[in-house]
Write a protein that binds this DNA or RNA. Structure first.
Length: 174
DNA sequence: CAATAGATCATCT
DNA sequence: GATGATCTATTGC
């Protein structure tokens, strides 16, 4: 354990079910995707490229495997804990690089496949409403996918250049 | 800054 | 046996 941390979600992507070939659940239920077919508000965490883990929030009713991939966080608290988990204690890396990518944020927050299926409305790992702050949203195609590479399903906080640096540097499409 | 290579393995065909 | 919702280091302009 390295300590607790808080981050604001500043970049996401939506994945649908059978109608979205880019989604893991497009073929239906498998051992891996079964939590996607469960109730909303739970975590779906999977291993990508054999090395990194990605966090999703199940976001549709039971039986409908819609989910939201969390792509980037703006670190809010516990920055040193995030830095420790990233192994960046003695490295010259800026705060905005701590969680500006799907694989980076899981490491920074200490999220692993052990959290797969966790209830995100209560417990150690929580996702909740933030402030009343208003912000503009931007939309673009999703990043790093082969199928449906032109669907506008990536959403991020826009209209604020100081926030964009907390978002991933990947370009849409593939 | 852009493009590329390599690491590394659970999952599904 | 091929694939992939990524990241880092490196090379080339």
């Amino acid at each position: 354990m390295h300590g607790s941390a808080v981050g604001r979600i500043v970049e996401t992507e939506a994945y649908l079910g059978l109608q979205d070939r880019a989604a893991h659940a497009w073929r239906g239920i498998t051992p891996r995707t079964k939590v996607l077919f469960g109730p909303a508000g739970h975590a779906y965490v999977y291993l990508i490229y054999g090395m990194y883990e990605c966090l999703n929030i199940v976001a549709d009713k039971e039986g409908e495997p819609g989910c939201v991939l969390i792509r980037a966080l703006e670190p809010v608290a516990g920055l040193s804990a995030m830095r420790k988990r990233r192994g960046l204690l003695n490295k010259d890396v800026r705060d905005h690089e701590l969680a500006n990518g799907p694989g980076k944020l899981t490491i920074a927050m200490g999220i692993t496949r052990a959290h797969n299926g966790a209830d995100l409305t209560r417990g150690r790992l929580v996702v909740c409403d933030g402030t009343e702050e208003k912000f503009e949203t931007g939309v673009s195609p999703r990043i790093g996918i082969r199928h449906n590479a032109d669907w506008p399903m990536r959403f991020y906080i826009a209209g604020n250049t100081s926030v964009s640096r907390f978002q991933s540097s990947g370009r849409p499409g593939r």
